[in-house]
Design a binder for these strands. Structure first.
Lengths: 167, 167
DNA sequence: GTCTATAATTTGATAGAC
DNA sequence: GTCTATCAAATTATAGAC
């Protein structure tokens, strides 16, 4: 993975988390990276492919971070909460897959499939931690909702208080 | 409020709930209503004003529906859950203010203010029902998150099971 | 791999006739 | 209040030089 590709993915991730799929353009990303939009197209021929790549990297990193915490002895639900919290505090933005899921009707099949993968893997991992499927979905939904509300109220402490029940 | 204005708001609401603020255009709405885009501009000179009007109507109707249930003897948390559930089952789409909140960085101040109003009023109403502020935020976040997850998993029963804990 | 240039379409918005 | 016509800008995407 080259530096340019990573920079493109970084920019697109940040912009999707702030403004959704339709809220960013190839020129926006190109300007962030310091190249021309045709160079972005060289690496990602279509916008759908760029968004799908962003979602896949986001999910892989997210799961990796959760696994690392669980490997370090953390309880699974706490691990998910911590990684969500880190994403919110570090970037001050919505979960990428939450931002995309909120407008799922506009997503191309391949993008929606990647977003769905984030949720399915989350449910699966939480079930591996001992939760039944309904509880796993409830925890994941609560985390996404807490992030969304913290986002619009512009108050990160909202995430803490909304999910303190899991502690 | 004329029929055309209502039809414009209906179309814009539906489209924002499916694809977010940047995911719809004046021409989309005009085609839905059966007029030209210049006619939409006549009623709503700027896109921001249209979105703000949609959010305001959505919030007013939502609060009205909740108040009606509470007036009919329902418990406040249940009333909120029911109105969310109806919005999901009837339209098969995300909460309008949830969809906008997820991409709050792209919103003009006046639109974001309307979205914020939905959440602030929700918190206020739940507090009137006896919850402390943290619990009110937690309930509202959980409802938004449940709707988001039901949306992406394309399974409305997810909303039920995710929020059954409130029953 | 990145650039210039450009095509084809869409977008938000306005002017003016009816 | 709706229309036709149009604008200026932005959008996704491609061709071809370097």
């Amino acid at each position: 993975m080259t530096d340019t590709i990573n920079a493109i993915l970084d920019s697109a991730e940040r912009r999707i988390r702030g403004a959704g799929y339709s809220g960013f353009s190839f020129r926006d990303v190109a300007a962030d990276v310091g190249v021309k939009s045709s160079s972005v197209h060289y690496h990602f021929p279509a916008k759908e492919k760029l968004a799908a790549a962003v979602a896949r990297r986001y999910t892989d990193r997210f799961i990796q971070a959760v696994d690392a915490e669980v490997g370090g002895g953390a309880e699974v639900v706490q691990a998910w909460r911590d990684v969500f919290k880190t994403a919110l505090l570090r970037d001050g933005r919505m979960c990428l897959c939450g931002a995309l899921a909120a407008t799922s009707h506009e997503l191309a099949d391949k993008v929606r499939a990647e977003v769905k993968r984030f949720f399915e893997l989350g449910i699966e991992k939480l079930q591996d931690g001992g939760l039944d499927r309904a509880s796993a979905i409830r925890v994941l939904s609560a985390l996404e909702g807490a992030m969304l509300t913290a986002n619009i109220l512009d108050d990160q402490s909202v995430f803490e208080s909304s999910t303190a029940v899991f502690v």
